[in-house]
Design a protein around this nucleic acid. Sequence first.
DNA 1: CATAATTGAGTTGTGCACAACTGAATTGCC
DNA 2: GGCAATTCAGTTGTGCACAACTCAATTATG
Lengths: 154, 154
Amino acid sequence: MTTPEEARTAGPEALRLNRQVCFAMYSASRAATAAYRPMLEELGLTYPQYLAMLVLWEAEPRSVRELGEELGLDSGTLSPLLKRLEALGLVQRRRSAEDERRVEVFLTDAGAALRARASGIPQRLADAAGLTAAELDQLRDTLGRLANALHASH
Amino acid sequence: MTTPEEARTAGPEALRLNRQVCFAMYSASRAATAAYRPMLEELGLTYPQYLAMLVLWEAEPRSVRELGEELGLDSGTLSPLLKRLEALGLVQRRRSAEDERRVEVFLTDAGAALRARASGIPQRLADAAGLTAAELDQLRDTLGRLANALHASH
DNA sequence: CATAATTGAGTTGTGCACAACTGAATTGCC
DNA sequence: GGCAATTCAGTTGTGCACAACTCAATTATG
C-alpha cells in the first residue's frame, strides 16, 4: 500500500519536472544569482567572486584551502577566480613563508574598501525575495540540513 | 529602532556568509547536483541534460524555445546541450515544416527507453535528502515563490 | 504589398564547477 | 635521517550559464 505522500516521489508522477524539489532549487539559485547581477555589476564582481570577498571581509588573510573550505570550492575553481580578483586589484596572493605549499590571500586597501559599497546588498536582496524574515530563516535552515544530508549520502 | 529580525539583513552582520540564504541555496543546489551525479553517470547524462529529458518525457516533440521556457534556459545554453543529446542518440532535431525558424526536438527510441532507467532516481534522491515529504513539499513551494519574486524584481 | 519589427536558433566569448592530473612542500613512519 | 604518503595550489579539459551577437523566417504595420 502506498500513501499519497509516497506517491509524490515514487511512481511515474515522480519524473514530472514541477514535482522536483531539486529543479526548484536549481531555478531559485539561478534566479538569485540573476537578482544579484545588476548590484554586483556596480562593484565589478560576479556572484562567486562576491562570495570569496565575503569570506575575506570576515577574516584575512585566508589560504586558498581555507577559502575553499568555506565556499565548498576546490582549487580548480578558486585559483582562476582569485587570479581575476587579483587582476581587479582587490586581493593579493602571497606564498606562505611557514608553509611554502600554501598561498595566502590578502585584501588590498581597495578590496577592504569595497565592503562598504557591498553593505546594502543583503537588504536589497531580502527585499526582492518577497519572503518574511522568518520564512528566510527557515529556508536557510532547511537548505542547510538538506545540503548536509546530501553530502553525507555519497 | 531596529528589531532583531531586521538586524539579520541590515547592519554589518548582514555580510556574514552563514547568514546568507542565497549562499545556502547555492550550496544546496550544488550538493544536489553532486548527489545526482553518480546516478546520472549510469545513464551517461549531466544534470541539465537530465532536466531536458524530463521535459521531453512529459511531452514531445518540443521546440528549443519550449524547452527553454520550461527550464528557464536560453538557446545559448540549450543549443549545444541538445547537440550533445543528439550525439548520444537520445534525441533528434528537425527543422519545423510550418515554421522554418523552429527546431523540433524528438525522442529517439533510445531516448524514450531511458525513461525506465531513470524512474528510480527521484525516490533515491528523496531518500538521500533526509527531509520528510512534507518538508520537501514546503521547500519546493517556498523556493517557487522566492524564484517568482526574484524574477519580478528586475 | 512592402518593409520594419519581432521571433527563433545558433555562435562566440567569459566565467564558473568539477574531474583528473601535475609538481612541489610537508608530514608520518620506520 | 630517509622515504612513502599526504597536502596544497595550479593546470587542463568538458559542460553548463549567460551576454551579446548573427542570420533567417515570420509577423505586424503603414
